[in-house]
Design a protein around this nucleic acid. Structure first.
Lengths: 331, 331
DNA sequence: ACCTCCCAGGTAAGCGCTTTCCTGGGAAAG
DNA sequence: CTTTCCCAGGAAAGCGCTTACCTGGGAGGT
């Protein structure tokens, strides 16, 4: 690859001058030299080495994002928001998929730190894992001490800038909706046990049961994806024949539940969580608890990019019930 | 941030020794020094500066990916495949969204080049735009001359390693399916005109019409997303009342078409393209032309990571008709 | 005609690493 | 007790940039 040196030599100037021209420095340069350098750049297809540049200046410009999996629609939506504000700020974003593995998440934080990102946002749920939480806090602290900025989405064992969705209230809303429709026996398809998202949404559902003086809902744990939602539904209906409504802790699993129900002859309500784009296109259209995913991403990125504040900023994101056709009174 | 110098000083060794220990160099080092350095690394939360490291070694390790939009399920699937093989190879992948803007795509190629990526894969459709094609070819050539590797997905105006899906044959399959069912008057909801994907799929549909001795299908152009598919359907039905079947050039638009149809009282067949995950969960379940998206991504990344071959490698990906419930004979 | 001043342009010192090459001292050999 | 060899460890030269600082010569002033 052509280097700045090559360009300078070809244009017959020093690297300093070439650099100034290429970067549009404020230092005045004669038009003749400028033309020669620009011509050399084109001829040589010169592109500055980003690493050398980052080393030389010490401003950091890229930002990092750690999600569980970008190809999961939930994170795809959040990422869309993150990207929107990062790009508007002229920043490259590096996306890392942790696939819900705390160890990998930690590795990625280190990797991003090594890449000198200006900020990072952790967009996945928090984990119930004290050991992991300690290491994460340590690494993140070191990063922040070095001038890095971080924002998280969701409830993490860490104080700092965060956008935290109303998972517990959202769960409550879901439960309340079902009980109000007249369901007496409901079941929950939960996500992985070690995620705070699961815990919180479930807690809301349980609170709704208490408020409505019903026994706690039956719970079956699945993996937050469609297929495990589908099989969990099968297991659940077999084990608890009296259940008339199912609350899935995210829309993917709710879609799986719907798929299973399509094949069996039982009229069971299903409510999801998140309001992902598919929700309105499945049949019956999915009743769900909406979270403004893309806005949450945008907000998190704004926090991460904003000047650090002495007080941690915590933005609560309200959840909202979206009634469609997948919930109805029991017969 | 702590530097290697800090670590070396704290451990009372030279930076050379510290570097060797940290990188597990083959050079033997006494256990005592090793322990001191490792302790210093932990104490200081030291993480090597990736940029400095890249400058010093000259091996490039990251890879770049340019897609139209990761949050579009089509690209999400492809990206999943790309990531799978890149991660297995221990590489960081940098994802860039061009949002179907050729200029932005060009910018990203330069950016990735600047970041010294070992390889890049262009995962979006090609464009019909000779000027753009020329610049792209130039930049890519310069990149490859510098030792960079590139692979593309789809038909691009460029010779080189590529995985190219059977878009034309797929379009033909879609048309054939519809004509065989007995439809005589069909319409297609196409994607943006400047994409080769649109052209190719459409060409297949037209060929099917000729083969079946039918007039060419009515065409309306939309944006490859759900909402524009929905409104295109409305426009189309108004303009061409005799149409009994619609072929959408991707599943997102097909889903939009289905959504519109749900609201009107007309029994019209819809066939999609791609077989995205949602296809089986909409109602009626979407008949579509399947492309193994995730495998295509994986394959493209393998090509990009493999040693360069003198002959360009072109992998054709067959398309397959998946019959579900959204297509049926006209009444 | 001579001295300042100014400014376009160059010189060179890093940025944080890796790695080649060199060094000095102990072990082995005589 | 020397001499040779070997090897752990260090010095230093870059990698490709940016930028503070320096320089030389023309313009302006007296």
């Amino acid at each position: 690859m052509a280097t700045l040196d090559d360009v300078a030599r070809r244009a017959g100037v020093s690297t300093a001058t070439a650099s100034r021209i290429i970067n549009g420095s404020s230092k005045p340069v004669s038009a003749a030299l400028r033309d020669r350098v620009e011509a050399a750049v084109v001829d040589l297809h010169y592109v500055p080495n980003a690493h050398a540049r980052l080393l030389a200046r010490s401003e950091r410009t890229a930002v990092g994002v750690i999600v569980h999996d970008v190809s999961d629609p939930y994170f795809a939506e959040i990422t869309r928001g993150l990207q929107r504000v990062a790009t508007a700020d002229g920043r490259l974003v590096i996306i890392c998929n942790s696939y819900r593995d705390p160890a990998r998440e930690l590795d990625y934080v280190e990797l991003l730190r090594g890449h000198q990102v200006a900020a990072m946002v952790l967009a996945g749920s928090g984990y119930h894992d004290p050991v992991f939480a300690r290491s994460l806090r340590g690494t993140l602290r070191a990063y922040e001490l070095g001038g890095g900025r971080v924002a998280v989405i969701g409830r993490h064992a860490r104080t700092g800038d965060a956008v935290v969705p109303d998972n517990e209230p959202g769960g409550y809303l879901a439960g309340e909706h079902l009980y109000t429709l007249g369901h007496r026996e409901i079941a929950v398809i939960a996500g992985p046990r070690n995620l705070t998202t699961t815990t919180d949404r479930l807690a809301g559902l349980r609170r709704a049961a208490r408020t409505h003086r019903r026994p706690p809902p039956k719970v079956v744990y699945a993996d937050f994806d469609r297929d495990s939602g589908e099989s969990a539904t099968a297991a659940l209906l077999a084990a608890h024949p009296r259940v008339t409504a199912i609350a899935a802790l995210n829309d993917s699993m709710a879609v799986g539940a719907l798929a299973h129900l399509r094949g069996v002859d039982r009229r069971i309500s299903v409510i999801g969580f998140d309001d992902m784009p598919i929700a309105r296109d499945v049949t019956p259209a999915l009743t769900t608890i909406r979270l403004p995913l893309s806005d949450m991403g945008a907000l998190a990125m704004s926090l991460a990019l904003a000047a650090p504040s002495p007080e941690p900023r915590v933005e609560r994101i309200p959840a909202e019930l979206i009634q469609r056709e997948s919930t109805f009174p029991p017969r």
